[in-house]
Amino acid sequence: MPTILSDTWTVFSRAMLLSVRQPLWVAIGILQPILYLTLFGPLLERVASVPGFPPGDAWVVFVPGLLVQLGIFGGLFVGFGIIAEWRAGVIDRMMVTPASRVALISGRVLRDVVVLVVQAIILTGCAYFFGLRVPIWAVLIGLVLIAMLGAAFSYISYAVGLMTKSEDAFAPLVNTVALPVLLLSGILLPMSLAPAWLQVLSAINPFKHIVDALRAIFRGEVLSPVVALGLVLAIALIALGAWFGNRVFAAQTK
């Protein structure tokens, strides 16, 4: 299907151009994880000696968490953008063209993934100066995992944004989802430090396993079952997100 590809490219390049012209937003997006890195990371160096702390030094534990956080939040908030585009008439304007519906959302998701990967590279680069030592191939696998996660959330966020069509409805919804996901995934502190009941709750959260997978990848244990589980979950998430996003986009004209 060449039109899907060329339409996706058209949507992507338009969106990318707009992002490149607004580097401030890309910078703000990266600012939060960098603050965590500088202001919270050093605390973990001390905690790393506590019993129950997972294997690997503080940075190998902490940076994967920040990357997953970047992936989730980077994707989750893009819905605000589509609400603004919808209000400006851009979505309807594209919907009345013969363009593929799948392309209209996927081109935007692709832009978000590119922005996310750039942010993730910057974050990992900064972490290197704090003392993160990870083989380059592990970083590359990690980026693929983060890209998939970001794409899944980006699809879902666009879908929910278009369903609500209102920032006032969208914002609390996103925050309600984001906070438990963040707390239960062991992003800040590893869940191995948690009491048993919290560990059980956390085990239900798929993102906890993705964080664990990324930590294992950073330790160099690529062939472990933890990594396999994380990758399978990431693939399932992106499939679910893409299905949901495309369904909502197609339903816009129902």
């Binding site: 339409d7 338009r14 607004q22 603004a84 585009e85 008439g89 309807d92 013969p98 363009a99």
Partner: peptide
């Protein structure tokens, strides 16, 4: 179709919006 809601993003440049729109056809 010219919607009353408009058709362009505020941050986008007029010429680029037009050319990218034409690509869909």
């Amino acid at each position: 179709y010219v919607s009353q809601a408009g058709s362009t993003a505020s941050e986008a440049r007029a010429g680029e919006e037009l050319v990218s729109h034409a690509r869909f056809y």
